[in-house]
Amino acid sequence: MIVFISGGVRSGKSRVAEQCAQRLADEGDRLHYIATAKKTDEEMAERIRHHQLQREKGRWKTWEQPHTLREIVSFFHTCDVVLLDCLTNLWANEMFQDEQWQIEEKMQKRAQNVYRDILDLASRTKGLVIVSNELFNGGVPSDAGTYLYMKGLGWLHQQIVAVSSVAIVMQYGIPIVKKGERPCGTEPFLPCNF
């Protein structure tokens, strides 16, 4: 099953996604965290440390995979629950890994490949929780790179939500369920540490 969680920055996505993955995992299952961020500057490194600390208490195995998910898909099985954090980074790293991002057809193909890998991952595992960002409500910049990036991400969001069991938008730490049942791990509201 796929659980899709989107939201703005600092809206509590990761916290709810981790709780959700933990709730999906049964006794003896393994929890996996696919980290997609590249350490580009000190602030980014700090964000990564923040997320690592959050997970240390649990039984997580972390995979650093900024792009090309299919390289690791075959490592997962039915007793694994995977958290992919986050699709926004993954898609940026896929799209801008070389100089071909201006070619719309190639980017469509790349988005299709990302979607295929996500479906593969979901079908192999007990649960796949995908975190992404809401960045579609501030207009569309006129530069081609951002336009194609948003177009591809929007397409991915629509495909993923269509096959998700649960789809959530986070708002001020509150999960708003857009699709499916009130999901695992989002209830009750646990106090969070900022």
């Binding site: 809401e134 579609f136 409500n137 207009g139 569309v140 948003m150 177009k151 991400l153 929007g154 397409w155 969001h157 629509q158």
Partner: peptide, 8 residues
């Protein structure tokens, strides 16, 4: 209405 690329 809705954001860009949301399937309107």
């Amino acid at each position: 209405s809705g954001g860009a690329f949301q399937g309107k």
